[in-house]
Amino acid sequence: MDYTWQFNVVWRNFDVLLQGAWLTFQLGVFAFAGGTLVGLIGAAIKTYGPLPARLLVDVYVVFITNTPALIQIYFLYFGLPEVGVRWSSEACVLIGLTLNAGAYLTLILRAGFLSVRTTEMEAGETLGMSRLQQIRYIVVPHIAKSIYPALANFFIVVLVMGTSVGALIGVDELTGTAINLSTVNYRWLEYFTVTAGLYVVLTLVASVGLALLGRWAFRVKARIV
């Protein structure tokens, strides 16, 4: 292989890549936050809701988790304008990822809900706690501790696998920026090598942050690497 690597042009545009990385991070955080909200509602309905509502959540989860996020986003971006709903590509990615993550987070959070034993609630009752106190001091810490590692792991999945899909409908997040820049001067390998490195750094920072947060907030020993 007689390929000459030339990274100069990449370093010259490094700040543009960093801007892309920042957008990737924002998309990841917002989609994950939105997804957690959706997932909480879904898991609550699955656990305590009436049967029709539970079935509805099941359909949502099964359908979303068995189709690609890319197709879901294409549907929003290319399909919805036909019925008069016109969202920007950023909005489509964010809404699509939120709905996608929401389905997976419903499953993760539901497992957390189920892990709380009624005996623990009863223990709280005998200590004279109110329902709200039981939730505050028993249910939430218990769920947080049991599913925090899965949540932290899934955040990385959203941050990496999820947001990069945006590149395919023209969102200038990290992958999209790399595609744009390398189309200009054809240093594809260099751009994508550096981009891969930036993803590794970004997710490592996120992993370390999440591990520290978990240790501080929930006394969870999450694995960093």
Partner: peptide
């Protein structure tokens, strides 16, 4: 293992595509 779990599949696709095309 650690690196590949932290790179989007899309980026891997591009890397493989352009790497293979150079060889």
């Amino acid at each position: 293992v650690e690196v590949f779990r932290r790179i989007p599949f899309l980026v891997v696709i591009y890397l493989v595509l352009f790497f293979i095309q150079t060889v």
